[in-house]
Write a protein that binds this DNA or RNA. Structure first.
Lengths: 339, 339
DNA sequence: TCATGGGCTGTAAACGTTTACAGCCCAACG
DNA sequence: CGTTGGGCTGTAAACGTTTACAGCCCATGA
């Protein structure tokens, strides 16, 4: 099998020769920089398409001192959020002429940084505070996703309205569905999302003059099995409740299962709602009422801010995208109206 | 806000100076190419870590005529298969020192090609035959995922054992569960996966001496809503059947819903099985018996083959990874044994 | 007529690596 | 002692762009 150089053999020089111009002019046409006569533009374009010329990226990057490359740092590729988030980023990057490099943590270090990207998107806790500080000290462009910067650092971040979403959902449970005793299943204690969702829940309670009971609060850890155990225990203890607000859809799944295994009907005996609107939530029995987070827009906004930071040197310090509550059947609202 | 060059300022020259050696030697140490004395290695390593030197990727690529970059082409970022597939690819690429560039089709062309990558992974039908032929003519390294090359082209491809999986599942339905009348819901007519799954289904029938009835075959199109309609119609026509083998999990979801809405119990009245083992399949009611496709390994294998093609000039023409059948409750097998 | 200046173009020096080539030193060998 | 050769090192020429700078041409105005 013959070996052929993998990189395209046609260079800007070939184009220049064919068009009867210099490489400088060809470059100016390609990048729309500097003044070029119409005739030259035409000839360059012709030569380019005849030769199928594609500029060599590496040379371009080296000469222009710009990578046109964004890095995405995360510790693992998985989860329902990933495809939409990446889709949003890809769209944003592409529109601005950037490429996206994905790097997962391995061996304690990432394969992206100032040497091969113009800036990075830091997903959640994929970078610890020390690393963040170090990059910030070099004033390397970064934007954080789903988590605010550590104290003292001015790094833009984008996330969504966890608190408002949880509050709206709790409002719905109280106002539309008429529930009073509403339990909340929070996530891991160091989780920002969990913190704000709980805040939203409490604020709604307070706004409606409903006292907060700490025995209606437990940790489901954003995990279906842990949530299952917690709920089974609640039921075993004879806890009475109108509804359970699970901090995320995972724990809502565990909750529904636990209730059903305990012989309770959802939503007739106890209503259940979740948070995230993960793909499986609409196929649950009953279909889950939940809060939809604008994951895709979140990714899109993040690259938009990052590019602004790279090109203009500034970005909005904080962007919180609005959530939307999705009413299906597990909250008992529709069921109550239809009959 | 001060602008700072985004690319790392420390060059190989700085390292060389600090180590009291030439750039050539530093390069040799960095890339483990050519003979270098222990003492020099030590000094270079010291200088590198003191200066936090990271080689500029663009310069490296330009000089070495190697991009160390793989492209992944797909028409859309979505679906349950995506995260595991990407995870597999990322692992494989990283192990071999390559980076991964993701490109979705937009405006009829992709942002990756010979000018910025050493080879590409072509997902399913993201590239049409003409484009494939063109790249093949330039002998640009490619590997195909989930679909064989068009007639006459020698492009390696990796997929999984659709036929064997479907056959094993049908065997299970017949042998373990004791069903005889088994319907099959196929996917889109031009879909390779669908074609082989149907083949597996038919082969199993034949091997067990069960006649194939064309009225037990319909098109669910790998879509839950279409499957829903088809199954409702079947039920309306009074079709009697022991089990329905849905061509994928999506259509299995539609099938279960249709059956339930028609007042039929799954699996007591009619068993249902799917294909893919998508994340939501285990949370369905009842949990879905299905075939697990080794998506992650598939991604891993694909980059392995691609890299072999790039570096050694050859790869295995066809790799079919084995599937595994996952028995849960929708097939009625466990339910039958437990009581 | 000549000076001015704007539009367009070309020359050539970067950019930060890799690597062919040549050269040095020293041990081993005749 | 002179030659050989292997291990190690340095010099400098690529790699394919961008872009500062200089220069040309020609229309314009004095």
């Amino acid at each position: 099998m013959p070996r052929v150089p993998s990189s395209s053999r046609i260079t800007i020089e070939d184009v220049a020769k064919r068009a009867g111009l210099s490489t400088a002019t060809v470059s100016r046409v390609m990048n729309q920089t500097g003044p070029v006569s119409k005739e030259s533009v035409r000839r360059v374009q012709l030569a380019v398409s005849e030769l199928h010329y594609k500029p060599n990226l590496a040379a371009k990057q080296l000469a222009s001192q710009k990578n046109n490359m964004l890095g995405l740092l995360l510790d693992e590729i998985s989860g329902d959020f990933f495809p939409p988030m990446l889709r949003g980023m890809e769209t944003g990057a592409r529109e601005a002429g950037y490429d996206l490099l994905i790097a997962t943590m391995r061996g304690g270090s990432y394969a992206v940084g100032p040497h091969n990207t113009d800036g990075i998107l830091v997903f959640d806790t994929s970078l610890d505070e020390a690393q963040l500080r170090k990059l910030d000290a070099e004033s390397f462009p970064m934007v954080l996703l789903y988590r605010p910067p550590p104290r003292g650092l001015q790094i833009p971040y984008v996330a969504f309205e966890n608190k408002d979403g949880a509050r709206a959902m709790t409002d719905h449970l109280i106002e539309q569905c008429g529930y009073q005793r509403i339990a909340f299943l929070r996530g891991p204690s160091d989780n920002q999302d969990s913190y704000w969702r709980e805040r939203g829940y409490r604020e709604s309670l307070e706004a409606h003059g409903i006292a907060f009971h700490s025995d209606l609060l437990a940790t489901g850890d954003f995990d279906d099995e842990i949530a299952y155990k917690v709920v089974r225990q609640w039921v075993g203890e004879g806890l009475t409740v109108d509804a359970i607000f699970a901090g995320d859809d995972e724990s809502a799944i565990g909750t529904i299962l636990a209730l059903r295994d305990a012989g309770l009907r959802v939503p007739e005996d106890i209503a259940v709602v979740g948070f995230d609107d993960s793909p499986s939530s609409r196929h649950l029995t009953p279909p889950l009422t939940t809060v939809r987070a604008p994951i895709e827009q979140t990714g899109f906004e993040a690259v938009k801010q990052l590019i602004s930071l790279i090109e203009k040197g500034a970005a909005q310090p904080e962007i919180l995208l609005p959530t939307e509550i999705i009413i299906r059947e597990s909250c008992g609202y529709k069921a109550r109206r239809l009959p």
